[in-house]
């Protein structure tokens, strides 16, 4: 403060320097945010009459839901069995199919046009929520677990393929060059210099993917792609709330269990 030439008797003030220095930008952003919130709230079609019935309805649903009812446990077991089967088969297919797509989408080993195709497949399959994909597959191949398997296979290809492609892009290039020097062809290089390097990662990823496929298989059923989700949807549709809550609680338990197991296995492997 010695540099300031104001008389030292004048009271000195201090304000916290604002987060955004430019006042125009600062107030502009605040106004934009406020206007957005008002606009968004105002433009959304809320059905207040229907919403106001919500509380009594919630009371009815929850009182109807407790205690959860496990009488029809056979239905529940069948649903879970199917979800589990969907998750396993989709993980297996997805993890295998993700390898070629990952190779296609790795910039260091795929030629340009192939690379673009590989990336596009991965981006597209990652953009869609599995439930949307499921509804299309249901439309194409009919209700049932087949649609679920196809959906989750695509979902796995997107997720595993992306991470695997990144892994391939980071491999130790020396091994590839060594193979090239030995006169190996493209496929031989893939099998001897690339895959061994990404294999450990792939095993961990499969465990992770099995866990997320199990979660997802519980929801694709809601649009008719098989598994416990369908059972849940039916229970809700028939106002069978005590059964629905029983399903919900067991879904939560299974998900927590599978998260724990998958975490434990991945820790063991690495």
């Amino acid at each position: 403060m010695t540099s300031s030439d104001a008389p030292s008797t004048a009271p000195r003030t201090w304000r916290k320097p604002p987060f955004i220095a430019n006042p125009l930008l600062r107030y502009g952003l605040i106004i934009v945010a406020a206007v957005y919130l008002v606009w968004a709230f105002g433009s959304l079609p809320f059905n207040w009459a229907r919403i106001s019935e919500g509380l009594p309805r919630a009371a009815r649903i929850f009182s109807g839901g407790f205690p959860p009812n496990l009488e029809r446990y056979e239905l529940l077991l069948t649903g879970f069995k199917e979800s589990f089967q969907i998750a396993i088969l989709a993980t297996l297919l997805g993890v295998f199919l993700s390898i070629p797509f990952a190779v296609m989408a790795a910039r260091n080993i795929a030629p340009m046009p192939i690379y673009i195709i590989g990336r596009a497949v991965i981006i597209v399959s990652r953009s869609f929520h599995p439930v949307i994909v499921a509804i299309l597959f249901v439309a194409a191949v009919g209700f049932g677990p087949l649609a679920g398997i196809l959906t989750l296979t695509l979902y796995s290809i997107g997720f595993v393929g992306k991470l695997l492609a990144e892994e391939i892009e980071e491999i130790d290039w020396g091994q590839v060059e060594a193979m090239k020097a030995a006169g190996a062809g493209y496929v031989a290089i893939l099998f001897y210099a690339v895959f061994p390097q990404i294999l450990p990662r792939q095993v961990g990823l499969s465990m992770y993917q099995l866990d997320s496929n199990l979660r997802a298989s519980a929801v694709v059923g809601i649009v008719g792609a098989g598994g416990i989700g369908g059972t849940l949807m039916n229970a809700f549709g028939r106002y069978d709330y005590d059964f629905a809550f029983a399903i919900l609680l067991i879904i939560i338990a299974v998900i927590l269990l599978s998260e724990g197991v998958s975490g434990w296995v991945r820790k063991k492997i690495w």
Partner: peptide
């Protein structure tokens, strides 16, 4: 604030 400036000047960190 005044006290803060005085003390900071005293130890040489006001700037």
């Amino acid at each position: 604030i005044e006290r803060a400036f005085v003390l900071m000047e005293r130890v040489g960190i006001a700037h």
